[in-house]
Simulated scan of single mutants.
Amino acid sequence: MASPYVDDFLPEALQFRPSVPLVDIGANLTHDSFDRDLDAVVQRAQAAQVSTMIVTGTDIAHAEQAVELAKRYPGLYATAGTHPHDASQWSDEVARRMASLHALPEVVAVGECGLDFNRNFSTPQEQEKAFEAQLALAAESGLPLFLHERDAGPRMRDILQAWRDDISQAVVHCFTADRDTLFGYLDLDLHIGLTGWICDERRGHHLRPLVGEIPLNRLMVETDCPYLLPRNLPAKLKGRRHEPALLPWIVRELAECLGISDAELGMATAATAQQFFRIDTER
């Protein structure tokens, strides 16, 4: 029988097709590393049962590109926001254009937005201003939030707590922080997105005992591709580019941490994502 995978980019050992459809809530498919073979990337994802992908929009240009991809490919949706790295570019004009994007049917969340005090490519003051402006847009649109946080947990929690009654749902994507930060987010009824970071024995294993503290109806999975290639893969991959077809390996690692089957975790996280983003995973 011919392999369902497109071209030979993925070695046969990595061509893992789980028994249930999965949802990748964070795929940076507008990254230029996908320019040459995006059709094949999407087809490989579908062959791996990753039937739904949320394409992350981190600024106006990338959000507009994400919308175009969502129009082109069934099963793809977009977010629209300004990443904290780019918060210095926030303006009334950016706010106006973001609000227009949030009104489109392809856009299912406000973000990626939040705080990143690790690298401070924009100042903390600029980040907080842009973040609060996007919280206001989320409150106005009713859309859920797709959040980024690094080394800014206490301040993020304070800001979100002040807005919690005005916004709908929110997910802290690519969570990598500690127990106290996790519990602070859960206390605010936030969702948590986990990536291949948990597969990294050098820096991600502190997350393993925390996974069981996240209610299944608050947990979602993501690749954050092309970044964070899992280190648990049983074969080497050409280059270091991550892609949605590898999401099943992250699900397998997380299921092992939780002591449940891949299928149970896949079904639970897909159902949570479908409800959170208000999407039809059969589209």
Rank of each mutant, 00 (worst) to 15 (best):
L210C: 05
L14K: 01
V50W: 04
V171F: 09
I60E: 05
A177V: 02
A80C: 06
G81Q: 08
V55W: 05
S51G: 06
F117P: 02
R36A: 14
A2P: 10
C113Y: 02
Q169R: 14
F146D: 05
T58G: 09
D280N: 11
F34T: 10
D180T: 12
V6S: 14
R36T: 12
K129Q: 14
R155F: 11
W163H: 14
R97E: 01
L145I: 12
V23L: 08
I214L: 07
R179F: 15
W163G: 09
E264V: 10
V20A: 06
A61V: 08
L216D: 07
N232G: 04
S91C: 10
E68I: 00
H31G: 01
A177G: 06
D37H: 10
N120C: 13
F117E: 06
E112C: 04
T52M: 12
L135S: 07
S51P: 05
R44C: 09
F183S: 14
T30K: 01
L216A: 10
E12G: 00
I25D: 06
M220V: 08
C199S: 11
E132T: 13
R72D: 00
A45Q: 10
D86C: 06
D116A: 07
A47L: 09
P234E: 01
V50C: 05
T181S: 11
F121W: 11
D7K: 12
L190I: 15
G75R: 13
P215V: 13
K71G: 02
S3V: 10
R72E: 00
D151L: 09
P4E: 07
E213C: 04
G266E: 01
I250K: 08
E12T: 03
A70Q: 00
A48C: 09
F117W: 05
A139K: 10
V41H: 12
L14Y: 05
V41K: 13
R240Q: 10
A130N: 09
D59S: 12
S100R: 15
R72P: 00
F277N: 01
Q15G: 07
C225Q: 07
D165R: 09
L229M: 05
